[in-house]
Amino acid sequence: MSDILVVENLKKSFTTGDKTLTVLDDVSFSVPEGASISIVGPSGSGKTTLLGLCAGLDVSTGGSVSLVGIKLNALSEDDRAYVRNQYVGFIFQNFQLLPTLTALENVTVPLELRGEKQYKKKALDLLDRVGLSDRAYHYPSQLSGGEQQRVAMARAFISSPKILFADEPTGNLDEETANRVTELLFDINRSEGTTLVLVTHNLDLAAHTERILQLKGGKLISDQKSMRAV
């Protein structure tokens, strides 16, 4: 099984005035196609920064990221956007739904950006899978937090991504809703065969993945199989 994500000696620093802040320092790991991993660590450990670099949302100060065999560091911003559109799905903590679009329209956005035409049936099928077939024509303001996150989940899977990046996907949800979203996320991810990279401070959520990477102070201090994968 080939690696879909390869991170080598990754470094990210920010300079303000005469001070340099190193957020990530010499981080290396790889993720096989179809695997699931969690990135955990305290606030400020570099988790979200690492996710953004892996997904091509930002570029590193040093080291490299290869995604689906493509070296992201060498690409322009437009080329990185193209790679994301073709291969990547996202789920964020704050849902990031477009408020002027219905649930159905939010789900179809990635395929519209690709120029695909036959997307309505697939979007409705995905909304049905996340239990929202009766909410397809509601706007985000008419949906609960859990419902908005399930719309975001359907949107993430609509383009059949090779890899899904999820940043604290249950962070804004109550425990019961978070458990339902977690179950749906892993069920759909498993059935689609998508690679999953999950950032979370929730160790119970992290335990659902096959492998857990722990960051501290911008360094990768642990890379272990989760107890469920042993």
Rank of each mutant, 00 (worst) to 15 (best):
K121F: 02
L57Y: 10
K121M: 05
K117P: 00
S191Q: 15
E176T: 14
P99D: 11
S141E: 13
S191M: 09
R155M: 08
L24R: 05
F14I: 14
S13L: 04
G17V: 10
F165R: 08
S45M: 08
T209L: 04
F157K: 03
V65P: 09
R150V: 04
Q142I: 02
V65L: 07
A207Q: 14
T15L: 09
F29W: 12
E183H: 12
F29V: 11
L75D: 00
T194K: 00
I91H: 00
K12C: 04
A152D: 08
L67M: 03
L98W: 09
Q142S: 11
E8I: 00
S2T: 14
I37F: 06
D125F: 03
I221L: 07
E116T: 01
T200F: 03
G131Y: 13
K117D: 00
G145M: 03
E147C: 07
A206E: 08
G146P: 05
T48V: 08
Y87N: 12
T16L: 14
D125T: 11
L5S: 08
S64A: 15
T170I: 08
T200E: 05
R211G: 06
R180S: 07
G44D: 11
N189Q: 14
R80D: 09
V65T: 02
N202S: 14
Y87I: 01
G193V: 13
C54F: 08
L97Q: 06
L50D: 06
G34K: 11
V6P: 02
V6M: 02
I212Q: 11
S38Q: 09
L50G: 04
D79H: 10
T194V: 15
L51S: 07
N172D: 13
E77Q: 12
S159I: 01
V107S: 13
V88L: 07
L220N: 04
L143W: 10
H208R: 15
E183K: 12
E105H: 06
D125V: 05
L143G: 05
R155T: 05
P99V: 03
G69V: 01
